[in-house]
Nucleic acid binder design. Structure first.
Lengths: 205, 205
DNA sequence: GTCTATAGTTGGATAGAC
DNA sequence: GTCTATCCAACTATAGAC
């Protein structure tokens, strides 16, 4: 809809994304948002109606793209490498990784991680309605790769994978990594390591 | 210090714990806390001085016990089953599980998960100072079980395990499990599944 | 230790001029 | 679409009576 990425609406979305990642949703005031976006305080309510709606729009902007990419890559994986587990995992993990490498999307991964913690919110419903469907598609795709696995056990393990992904991508780790590894972007290494870890974990007896 | 668990101070801590789990730290007001605890609004400042200090005390109450238990079980695991991976993982995972089974501790696990998302807070320092040391002890204990693994790769995988644990224990999964599994407490099953998943993931080539 | 009352801030949201 | 000015609700924190 917007002809440029630097109009008021997108500046607000970008500022909100960064602040939500740092301070959470209720920890961020609209005054902080408009101050960082360098727009007037009234602009938020003019363009988004309310704070809650602003939060939803921050999600919609990134989620749609990430979900589409995941599904698209899942389809290619199933065509090009039928029955193989790793390509499916890559289709799930790499679109999230791509966000962490994007200068503007990196904050969103932390926002996403925060959303999981907002257990009783309407945000959960929003996420479950969209993101949940994607997860279910992946579950259906992975199941035939692990025929010896019961349905319940599969769901448990997929939750573990999602947890590891969320946690790692948001860089929540409390153990500081040895110096020297921080220069190169951690994102691509994370995907590599996580795919290997997750594949092996899913295949546990 | 307290002779009963139902004095004002402990009621405030309990109410705060539950509300923090549901609505986050900045999403919870002291008025909600004192209302649920059925104490006067001024009691929080009398007993804790400030909201920030109340947050810290909510953590301290559970963390000290969980960390001690983890270290204690780690020592036993190393004595009774030297060189084995699974007992070490159990020592890490089961004290967290024990909290989810405790009627009063179950909220705390979600509070803990929230704390990870509070990226830039003083809470991170508090957690890193305490919890980080425990994690480092476990890293040292696990390393000899996986001699083929590089240090960097080990740290990555431990972060994945911590993420899966946090996420699963807080029950953040978006995929709803098949009906009928909810009657029995998920906690002990989660530990079982997670230990198997984590051990296999850590052993990935 | 517990209460009422209130000070002092900051929050989301809007009205109305331009 | 953007601004200033402002309303009103909710918040943390404290003072002072009991």
């Amino acid at each position: 809809m917007a002809t440029t990425h630097f109009n008021t609406k997108d500046r607000i979305l970008g500022a909100a994304e960064e602040l939500f990642a740092q301070h959470g949703f209720s920890g961020t005031s609209l005054r902080q948002v408009t101050s960082r976006a360098d727009v007037n305080i009234a602009a938020v309510n003019y363009h988004f109606g309310s704070k809650e709606n602003l939060v939803n729009e921050v999600f919609r902007r990134r989620m749609d793209e990430m979900s589409e990419r995941r599904i698209r890559e899942l389809r290619s994986a199933q065509e090009d490498h039928p029955g193989e587990l790793e390509p499916i995992l890559a289709a799930f993990i790499e679109p999230a990784l791509a966000l962490t490498l994007d200068r503007h999307g990196s904050a969103f991964v932390r926002v996403l991680a925060r959303a999981y913690a907002e257990k009783n919110d309407r945000l959960r419903k929003f996420l479950s309605d969209n993101y949940g469907q994607v997860l279910r598609e992946f579950a259906k795709a992975i199941a035939p790769c692990l025929p010896q696995l019961g349905k319940e056990e599969l769901y448990w393990r997929l939750d573990f994978v999602a947890g590891a992904l969320t946690y790692a991508m948001a860089d929540f780790g409390l153990i500081r990594r040895p110096a020297g590894t921080s220069e190169r972007s951690h994102g691509d290494k994370a995907a590599e390591h996580l795919i290997r870890f997750a594949a092996s974990g899913l295949r546990a007896p």
